[in-house]
Computed example of a mutant assay.
Amino acid sequence: MEKQQSKIEVNQLSEEDFILIVDEYKKKIINLCYSYTRDYYEAEDLSQEVFVSLYKNLKKFRFESSISTYIYKITLSKCMDYGRKSKVKKFFVNIFNLQEKSHEDSVLEKNYVRESIDKLPEKYKTPIYLYFYIGLNQKEIASVMGISEKNVEGRIYRAKKKLKIEFQKEEDDYEKKYRFNR
Results as ranks from 00 to 15, higher is better:
Lys27Phe: 11
Arg155Thr: 01
Glu104Val: 11
Tyr131Gly: 02
Thr75Cys: 04
Ser6Cys: 14
Lys160Met: 01
Arg114Met: 08
Ile74Lys: 00
Asp45Gly: 05
Thr37Lys: 03
Leu108His: 02
Ser65Gly: 13
Asp105Arg: 06
Ser68Tyr: 12
Ile141Asn: 00
Ala159Asn: 04
Pro121His: 02
Lys161Pro: 04
Ser6Phe: 15
Lys90Tyr: 04
Asp81Met: 07
Gln12Met: 09
Glu42His: 10
Tyr112Arg: 14
Leu13Lys: 06
Glu170His: 09
Leu136Glu: 06
Lys110Ser: 05
Val93Gly: 05
Tyr112Cys: 14
Thr75His: 02
Ile21Val: 05
Phe96Ile: 00
Phe51Ser: 04
Tyr34Val: 07
Ser86Ile: 10
Gln5Gly: 08
Asn97Tyr: 14
Glu171Pro: 07
Leu108Phe: 02
Val22Pro: 08
Leu58Met: 11
Lys164Cys: 04
Glu115Trp: 07
Tyr133Cys: 02
Ser68Thr: 13
Ile21Ala: 04
Phe167Trp: 05
Leu58Asn: 08
Phe167Tyr: 05
Met80His: 14
Glu24Phe: 09
Phe63Asp: 08
Tyr129Asn: 02
Lys177Ser: 08
Gly154Lys: 00
Leu98His: 04
Lys160Ser: 00
Glu104Ala: 14
Asp118His: 09
Tyr41Arg: 12
Ser6Asp: 14
Pro121Gln: 01
Lys176Phe: 07
Leu108Arg: 00
Ser77Asn: 12
Asp173Asn: 12
Glu171Val: 08
Lys28Ile: 10
Ile165Arg: 11
Lys26Trp: 13
Ser35Pro: 06
Glu64Leu: 11
Leu32His: 06
Ile19Arg: 12
Asp172Gly: 08
Leu46Pro: 02
Met80Asp: 13
Leu76Arg: 15
Met145Arg: 03
Glu140Pro: 06
Ile117His: 00
Asn111Phe: 03
Arg62Asn: 15
Tyr82Arg: 03
Thr126Val: 15
Ile141Arg: 00
Tyr112Ala: 15
Arg38Val: 14
Glu42Ala: 13
Ser53Met: 10
Ser53Asp: 12
Val93Pro: 03
Gln5Trp: 09
Tyr34Glu: 06
Tyr40Gly: 12
Ile71Ala: 02
Ser35Tyr: 09
Glu115Cys: 14
Lys176Ala: 08
Glu149Pro: 12
Val52Tyr: 15
Leu108Trp: 00
Glu100Gln: 15
Ser6Thr: 14
